[in-house]
């Protein structure tokens, strides 16, 4: 294992890292955009809550469970036609972002639901009692109250996505994982293998640290 070799491949590693960042960023964004509302729906349609709706809860819950039960590697392959249709290609980080997003949405939705469940029911009751509309309660009570917990969940989702994105390398998705497979696995290049793993370890540590800090910062409890 030589340092020279690592330095020689530094541009590649750098490129791969940026790709990972790109994939995780996109899918995290989509997870927030779609998963967050789904999580809110799962919670507020619950029995005894202000938008109680059994059928909606059951249908959304079923879809979320269904997507979550598919192993990611299968999802990756199964979504190839859809990926082709959406981004026009099936390889590269943008293409990998499609299946990563699909996996992240239900994952994050359940996390949001769990975070909302931690809110004191009395606070929700008090908001209903002052005559607030459902939208107001969601925007001004539920989301602010669950914010620290949702940020923790976002960190969790991001870290899971880092792991999933590495798997995307299998279908030529790009990123650190792809690099590890191409160089480390197929070419028996242990230097690259170890380097990529170190990069991933550091990345995850930083994500967790940043997430914890941020969650603590917004926590007023």
């Amino acid at each position: 294992m030589s340092l020279d070799h690592v330095i020689e491949l530094l541009p590649e590693i750098n490129q791969a890292f940026l790709e990972t960042l790109y994939m995780v960023g996109i899918s995290l964004g989509v997870a927030v955009l779609i998963g967050l509302p789904l999580g809110v729906i799962l919670f507020v349609t619950d029995k005894g809550l202000f938008l109680e709706n059994g059928p909606v809860k059951t249908v959304v819950g079923f879809i979320v469970n269904m997507v979550r039960s598919i192993p990611f590697i299968i999802l990756l392959v199964a979504l190839i036609p859809i990926t082709q249709w959406i981004v026009g290609t099936t390889i590269g980080p943008t293409a990998a972002s499609v299946s990563l997003s699909v996996a992240a949405i239900p994952f994050f939705a359940r996390i949001v639901e769990t975070s909302l469940r931690e809110i004191d029911k009395g606070v929700i009751e008090a908001s209903v009692a002052v005559g607030a509309s459902p939208w107001m309660i969601i925007k001004d009570v539920l989301l602010p109250e669950a914010k620290p917990s949702i940020i923790q969940g976002l960190t969790l989702t991001a870290i899971s996505l880092v792991a999933y994105s590495a798997m995307a390398g299998v279908v030529g998705g790009g990123g650190i994982g792809d690099l590890a497979i191409r160089f480390g696995y197929y070419r028996y290049d242990n230097t690259i293998m170890v380097t990529t793993v170190i990069v991933l370890i550091l990345f995850v540590q930083i994500l967790q640290l940043a997430g914890d800090r941020f969650a603590k910062l917004v926590d007023k409890r």
Binding site: S127, V130, M136, D140, P144
Partner: peptide
């Protein structure tokens, strides 16, 4: 309420403001 049920992520002023907004 017995347990007050204030919104913990909002200041006192914002808690009261919320009722006005509603």
């Amino acid at each position: 309420f017995q347990h007050f049920n204030l919104i913990s992520s909002k200041t006192i002023g914002e808690n009261i403001g919320f009722a006005l907004k509603a």
